[in-house]
Design a protein around this nucleic acid. Structure first.
Lengths: 297, 297
DNA sequence: TTAAATTAAGAACATATGTTCTTTTTTGAG
DNA sequence: CTCAAAAAAGAACATATGTTCTTAATTTAA
């Protein structure tokens, strides 16, 4: 009885995955992605998580030459007991440090990243989140503004957020000066501006314009004072310091993602429904790949 | 929602072990010694290994204040799957929980965010980073590819990265199908693809094209199996699970930022100089605002 | 379009698992 | 030593699990 290793088995599964029929493919993908869970769970629990029938897993096991399902799962189980040492604190980081110059760089980067994220999230009190979420929800239009590197953050926030809140508008949307796209902003509107040092002049000017038009300003930044005559109504501070010459955006990203979570969860039925529609559209247009399952009945 | 940690529970067991009757003591000792096995095995298997009756374990569970045996074993199970992702019990997070529905949502979001980031960075071993960095540095062109929400990540990576590495190219750069912009990709080139579930067909097809042209593929994703016939040369796994319907990108962002740090630091003099030039250019054109400091001296 | 082969779901079954109740054994106070 | 209390084992039970067999859907080939 030659015991097969988990590693070997995963490798086999991955290589053969393209030749599998639909539901077995979903199952195989799941096992490759979540080998730990697969080792721990029962057949039925795994089947449920994958959304296939229990006996699909039995068939998959047979495909790979196992007499019974238990034998197929066995390598994953033994791997669980043998090599899962729980390292309590972040000892793995200091471990990295002991491998030359590169190790020191990498450990520094990881430390810094965790630090700014933790700090940013800490600064994001429930009070502020609720304040900002309410402000966005009650607005007529909510413009999401950022320039240069921060534009990535605005793009992401808008991309995901508009599924729950169609009133979100990305600025700049076209290759223009953001001010041009804010000419119609008014009292009932909100401008959510994202800017990390160094602060671009366009952002500052756009905020000033919005202020003059009576819009409510939400600023997400590493500083409350990003330019002359910029007085945000709400301010969410993020940490952005780094070990090299640019700011780190991980903290801002984490904060935005948590804000998104909050908006989606508080969005209620309407948001849920809109998200459902997006998903349906995706399936129709085939924009995304997933191991398809045949329709039943 | 105060989940007890495995670590805490083992500590409790060890402290109380002397006051236990004979068979429960054997059981307790076994659990302390072989927590992994205990988490994995069924009640009867554990009882058998310890040589006590099944219901001795039930009684032990009750001793420690658990209603049922499953609850007692639970911490050991979760420790098995989430290998070493013990977020230090941030007091401030559980504090947030005590403020109604909104507080629970927010605390969940923060927890999840920290979890996926910590896990993603953990998966980012020095070995992989070095491998990937070398691969990028030695390439002729390095295309950074992503679609839809992930495009934000690619955009950011490219925006910052090109200051150190001008050979970085964002794809799609124009509003086109990414394949059109990859027609010239060749053996000496690298394609860094970023894709989080659900995976867009365009990304998958672009990777396949690059593969056929002999380019080296680096994939940053929550799964190694994102589509049929996609076999990356290097793979960096990130965690992306969330508490709502979309994937969370915070882990991917953190990983990319650490990769950037590494590339910049390893970029040497040339990179430093190029960055200096960028900064000089900024100052000249006044693209950025900075608070004027009073002249010293 | 039809027929055969493949693939998946569903139902049924024997066994395993966690729990509870009862009986037996052990412990300890008087 | 006796007897009550505590602890452990054993038996019985409902539910869960893996397996098998049957039926339905889907794909492939003619």
């Amino acid at each position: 009885m030659t015991k097969i290793s988990r590693f070997q088995l995963i490798e086999d599964i991955r290589n053969g995955i393209d030749d599998l029929p639909f539901s077995l493919k979903s199952a195989a993908k799941y096992i490759v992605d979540y080998p730990n869970d697969f080792g721990l769970d029962t057949l039925r629990v795994s089947a449920d998580k994958i959304s296939v029938s229990p006996n699909s897993l039995v068939r998959l096991a047979q495909r790979y030459g196992f007499e019974r399902f238990d034998a197929f799962r066995e390598p994953f189980r033994t791997a669980l007991v043998s090599d899962s040492e729980v390292i309590e604190d972040h000892q793995w980081i200091s471990e990295i440090e002991n491998h030359g110059e590169g190790g020191i760089y990498h450990a520094q980067a990881i430390n810094n990243e965790l630090h700014i994220i933790s700090r940013s999230l800490h600064l994001m009190t429930l009070e502020r989140v609720e304040e900002i979420a309410t402000c966005i929800q009650q607005s007529k239009n909510c413009y999401v503004l950022a320039m240069r590197a921060s534009y990535a953050l605005a793009y992401y926030f808008h991309y995901v957020g508009r599924m729950a809140l169609p009133k979100l508008q990305l600025v700049p949307k076209y290759m223009s000066n953001p001010m041009d796209e804010l000419v119609d902003i008014g009292k009932e509107d909100v401008l959510l501006a994202i800017s990390i040092a160094p602060y671009s002049v366009e952002t500052i000017e756009a905020i000033r314009l919005a202020q003059e038009h009576g819009a409510t300003i939400i600023l997400i930044s590493d500083s409350e004072v990003i330019g002359p005559n910029v007085k945000p109504d709400h301010f969410l501070k993020v940490a952005a310091f780094s070990t090299h010459e640019f700011s780190c955006f991980g903290g801002a990203m984490a904060v935005l993602e948590c804000l998104l979570s909050y908006l989606i969860k508080k969005g209620g039925k309407k948001a849920k429904e809109r998200i459902k529609n997006y998903e349906a559209m995706r399936d129709q247009t085939g924009a995304y790949w997933k191991p398809k399952r045949p329709r039943i009945r």
